[in-house]
Every structure is written in C-alpha cells, then in structure tokens.
Design a protein around this nucleic acid. Sequence first.
DNA 1: GAATTGCGATATGTCGAGAAAATGAAGCTG
DNA 2: CAGCTTCATTTTCTCGACATATCGCAATTC
Lengths: 238, 238
Amino acid sequence: MQTREKEALDGETLSEAAYKRLRRDIIIGARPPGERLRIEKLKAIYAIGPTPLREALQKLAQDGLVLSEGNRGFTVAPLDPAEFNDLNVARTAIEKEALRLSIQRGGDVWEARVVAAAYIMSKEDAALAAARDSVTDSWERANTEFHAALVSACGSNWLLRVRAGLHDLCERYRRVSVYQKLGSRDLATEHAEIAEAAIARDADRACNLTEQHFALTASALAESDFSGDGRHLDRRTA
Amino acid sequence: MQTREKEALDGETLSEAAYKRLRRDIIIGARPPGERLRIEKLKAIYAIGPTPLREALQKLAQDGLVLSEGNRGFTVAPLDPAEFNDLNVARTAIEKEALRLSIQRGGDVWEARVVAAAYIMSKEDAALAAARDSVTDSWERANTEFHAALVSACGSNWLLRVRAGLHDLCERYRRVSVYQKLGSRDLATEHAEIAEAAIARDADRACNLTEQHFALTASALAESDFSGDGRHLDRRTA
DNA sequence: GAATTGCGATATGTCGAGAAAATGAAGCTG
DNA sequence: CAGCTTCATTTTCTCGACATATCGCAATTC
C-alpha cells in the first residue's frame, strides 16, 4: 500500500530526476543558451554523481535542448532566430493536423477540457496584459494546457508526443519573446477565437487562427535580438 | 553529408558507437521486440562497459525504440498494430507537409536527387517483386532515400529530423509487413506516380498519393500478426 | 616577428565495484 | 489450502578513480 506512493516519489532514479531538473532549468532560462555544462560543475550544483548527469545530458541532447560534441562535452543549445522559424514550421504543421483530428474526434470531455482551459487562459492573458512581471510561470502553464487541451483528442499518441517536444523547444524562445512584443498583440482575443472555432467544430478556421497565432509569435521573435550566438555568456538580466 | 571518415570512426565515442549499433540491431530486428536488454548481456555482446551502454539505451528510449522502466531495466519496444496506426497518423501528417513545402521550394538539385532516387527505387521495386528474399536491405535503403529525397527541400531541419525519427520507427514494422502483403501491391507504380507528381509540382496529387501509399502499408500491417506481445523473451523454451 | 610544435593542465569518457531495489521462492500464519 | 511475510538471489543504479582526448601556453625555429 505504501509501496506505490513511495515508489512514485522515491523510486525515481537519480537519472530521471537530473533529467527533469536540468530540462526545466534550461527551458526557463536558468541555464542560459550557449552555457557549457561541465560535469564537475553540475555535480556540485545538483549533488548528483557523474553517471546520472551524463545520462540526463544525453537524453536532453536527443531532445534538442542540449548539444553534445564528440569529446568536447555538452552545451545548452543556443537560441537562434533562424532555427526558431525552422522549428515553427514543424510545430505549426503538427499542431494543425492534431487540431483538425481533435476537432473531428473530440467528445464531451474534450469540449469540457477546452472550455476549462480557455477560461483559465483568458484570466492569465488579462493578468499578463496588466502586469508583465511575475505572471510568466502561471501564464506558461495555462498556455501549455490550453493548446494541449485543444489537440488532446487527436487520437495519436505519437502526434502528441512529437508536438509536446516541439512545444517545449519553443517555450524557451517564447519566454524571451512574449514580453518584448506584448503591447502590439491581443493574446486574449487570439486564444478566445481559437477556442470558439474549435468548440464550433470549424476545423479550417481553428487551424488558420492557430497558424496566424504561431506566426505572430514567430515574427515578434524575428525582431528580438537575444544573444544566443553560442558564446558562453554567463549572466543575463533577469 | 557525414563528417570526415576516419575521424568519425576513431574519434567516435563508445557511447555513440553503442547507440548506433544497438539502434541498427533493433530496427533490423536482430534484437526482437519485447526482448529484455540486460546490461551484463549487452556488455558481453558488444564488448563495451556498462556506462556507454546505459547512455545508448537512454537515448534509444528517448527515440521510442526502447522502453525504460524505473528500476526495472530496458526492453526493446514491442510491435503493436494499434501503435503503428498511431505512428502512421503522425508520420503521414509530417510527410505531407514536408512534401508540400519541398515541392514548393525545391530547385534543380532537388529535382535531380528525386529523379536519381526514383530510378534506383524502380530497380529495387522490381527486384523485390521478383525475388523477395535477400533484397530487404538494399530495398530499404532505396526506399529511405526515395522518400528522403522528396522532402529534402522542405527548408525545415526540424521537420526533417522529426520525420526521420518516425521513419525509423516505422521501418521495423515495414520490415515485417512488406513480405506478407507483397503480392497485392504494385510498389513500383506507387513510387513512380509520387515521383512524377512531385516533379510536375503537383503538390496536392503528390500528397494524396503519399497518403494512400502509407495507408496501404498500414492496412497491410493491420492484418499481420507479428508476435510483438513482449512474450517470447530470451526465455529458454521448456 | 609569425607560425609551429611540444608540453602541461583541464575536462571528458570509461571501467569496475559497491549500494539500492526488484524478483522469486520458501516458510509461517490463519 | 490460501495469503502474507521474510529472505536470498539477481539486476539495476550510482559512485569514485583511472585512462584518454582536447585546449591553452610557452618555447623554438625559420
């Protein structure tokens, strides 16, 4: 009886724990793009031995969040506008297909989840428009759930898995972008319209809106000049 | 496209070597679906220590070719018809989008590559139709290159990366399927028509043909009863 | 004075052994 | 006889230390 609960918490291997913690730290920007990830340093920070750390880094490299060079160690993947466009093309294609399938196949529980996510999202969008400081984490959570809810009924776990991976890769860019071009966008309306079209089962409209939604983020980001060149910059302004 | 030949071999990490060898062995079926991958055993087979092996297995788990369970080791991912359908939905969506973009953006070198790949493919298709025994490897290579050539000009490295991953996952299924339902298909014509439509810049037709092409493989496989249950492990038969 | 080359220092990659966990079987209890 | 507990075996996971490769620096040579 206790075993189950303890397993879920304690039974996690250090390798998995390191993977999750590193992943999160990279996505939120705690480990800036281009930073070299030396094992000794990470060992001190996370209090984990070299083996689990290496395993975590290999997995992250497979995800595309970390670059692994031959015998030259690991670095946080740099942030490059060109690569984001690239990434966005792939993400948009997958999101549209998943959305179309989801609208086609979704039932009551799907609708309910979308409605609930849209409700939260509207609140977060409003909060973000008002004060753009401490909202990020909860806004990102809401945004993630909002889009995840929309495609959740698509019926293909692999489509969802790929989508989730690309979503996470984009999140790093998004966290840089959202602040900068915030004034000129009406995220609340964009999100509301997408949800509305999805519930109304208007797949074409929902897909078009989503495409525009992603494209706006992409164009906003194209103008951003985040210094993600690959040089190891130690600190960034929070 | 590969890097320097000798350095790539000498400077290659054991971890990478193990990854490549295991990956290939799993895809071609040398390590059957459901097989438990015990470290000690692999150590003996590949003459590599536990650490590089574990790193390779973690990466393969990230790819979806291997399942990694908590403290219970690794197993080759089972082959399940339902999952193949799932996989095929994702693959079809991505392939179609990449193909559309590629047809739109491809230039002379792209056309040349497609023509060349189609030429090889026609020969391999003919050979496969004639004698269905030892053709597999070269046929698979041709098939891989054929479809890769078609989408190569899509302009998004991430789209290609995701596509390649799904392609590899499907290859295991394909290797089981192609033989069984071979008689009822005309692969040569299917491939030729796709290439023709692509060169003619008829994106809609090329996408539709590709979708059918994939769907045929999927339906052929749905009837196959490969024992990918995870049952027949390396357990000695009583 | 510039380029090269050899050497030292740092970091990465790999191995073997030990700790933690799971599996399976025997023994005990009701 | 069934179900639970206990214990031994097997396997996985983690750590520390060694071997190997890379990078920076200084000395040497043309």
